[in-house]
Amino acid sequence: MLHKQLNISRGTLFTTLLIVAIAFQVIPRAHTDRLANLFSKVFKPVLDVGPRGFSDILGPAGDAEKFVSKSRYDELWKICKNTEADLLEMQRRYEVLSRVRSELPKPSPGLVLANVISLSIDGFGHRIVINAGTSSGIETGQYVLDTSQTSVVGSISGVFETTATVRLVTDARHIIMVGIRREGADDYIEGPMVGDGRDGCRIGLIPIKEHDVRVGDTVYASAKRGLLDTPVVTGEVARVKPDRNRPLLWDIRVRPLFEPARLTELAVIVMVPQEKED
């Protein structure tokens, strides 16, 4: 028996060997790994017999070049996950832009997708600040679409390098040329649309005698050189009655297709330079 040969008790043997083992555990790896490396070097021909597998990747003796520290691993893991999230967001934005583009009558204009930073609806105006600006090619006057409805919600009224302000069509100072068209009819009735400062818009200057306008007719933002190639829907006629002050003209109330509070993502129509020059 071993303990008889060495003349030591079981407890002493256990304690001694445990101390040796703990010493191996606490001594830095650079020193203790020499034993393992020596083993793998001496018996390399024997160890290499058989199909190569996982051990070749990790290395039986722990090839330091194939490992990173846990803190570095955590750092790389975070970078990887952030990049993955960024990629998913880019993929989602690409899909949104593709859908918006496919829903436009003439899908030629460039689109810049932007998130809503803030929404301000008060007596001073109806404005939205978005997180894209001149660095993305945005300029004053460009039309802005709601990505969920693909309808015109307003236009750019101010722009900085990385942000821009969108004035909504419901803003009392917002004027655009629109056209009214009824389904199945050929008439395209053009007129200026002004925001009513509340939740809708008004179209004036359309003679009652010449044009037949009814509730439910679709209102389009008219094409504008350098800004919009083809008319894009912006709302529908909600109420029609003769103007109280000018009885020969219609007083048309328009209900926009969007709800300002639900706007989270907008697409700005950015015409490419050659299209602007045309």
């Binding site: 445990l18 040796v20 083992a21 703990i22 191996f24 555990q25 606490v26 001594i27 790896r29 203790t32 790994d33 034993l35 393992a36 793998s40 290395g59 039986p60 003796a61 722990g62």
Partner: peptide, 9 residues
């Protein structure tokens, strides 16, 4: 295994 200590303990 290549790492001295853990298995011995």
């Amino acid at each position: 295994g290549g790492t001295m200590g853990p298995c011995m303990i």
